[in-house]
Amino acid sequence: MQKIAVIDYGMGNLRSVVKALEHVADDKHEVILTSTPEHIFEADRVVFPGQGAAGDCMRAIDEYGLRDTILEAAKSRPFLGICMGMQVLIEHSEENQGTECLGFLPGQVRYFGDKHCDSQGNRLKVPHMGWNQLKQTRQHPMWQGIEDGARFYFVHSYYLQTEDASLTVGACEYGFEFSAAIARDNVFALQCHPEKSADAGLQLLSNFVNWDGQP
C-alpha cells in the first residue's frame, strides 16, 4: 500500500484535495490527512495545500511545528504544492506587510495591485478568480495527458515572480504573464487548484499519484 499524505495545518478547506486524490487513486493507494510528522515521513508522496493569507499560513506551520517536516519532505519524495502551498515554499511574500516564507525555492510573491489592468488598459478584478489557461512552458511528467493551454481554476490575489527561469514549467496570463507552475527535482507546485479544475485537474492529480519524482 502506497501512502499519500495531505498536510493539514488548519489552513482552509482540505477536504476537496483529499476527495479528489481518492477519486483518482487506485486501491493500492491510501490518502491520509495529517499534521503528524511521523505520518508525513511514512508517506510515499506528500501534498502541501493551503488557502488564506501568507502570514496566517506561516504562523500555522510553526504552531503545528511542521516547518522542518515540510522542508524535509520537499527534499525527499514526490511533493505537490497547491496555491498557498506553492507560495510559502518561496522566500518572501508581500502579503500581510511582508511575510518571510519557507525559502525552499527562490522568488518573490507579489500583489496584483488595486489598479491591475490588461494590455489594453481594461481594469482587471482582484482576486484573479476563475478558469484561466495554463501554458506548459517546459515539458514535465506532470503534464502528461493534459492539453497545453487547458483551463484550470484559479483564485488568488498574489502571484509568483521568480528570477530563476529554470523553475517555471507553466505560465498564466492575467494582465501579464506570471509563473503558475514551478518544478525542481521531486517538487512540483502550482498556483491553481487541480482539485477544483474538473478533468484537467484530476489528470494532474492522477499524474502526481503515479509520478516517480524525476523531472
Binding site: 490588461d118 482587471l124 484573479h128 476563475g130 478558469w131 484561466n132 489557461q133 493551454g149 483551463r151 484559479f154 496570463e173 492575467y174
Partner: peptide, 8 residues
Amino acid sequence: MSLAKRII
C-alpha cells in the same frame, strides 16, 4: 487568451 467568464 485570458480569464474565462463563468456560467454558474
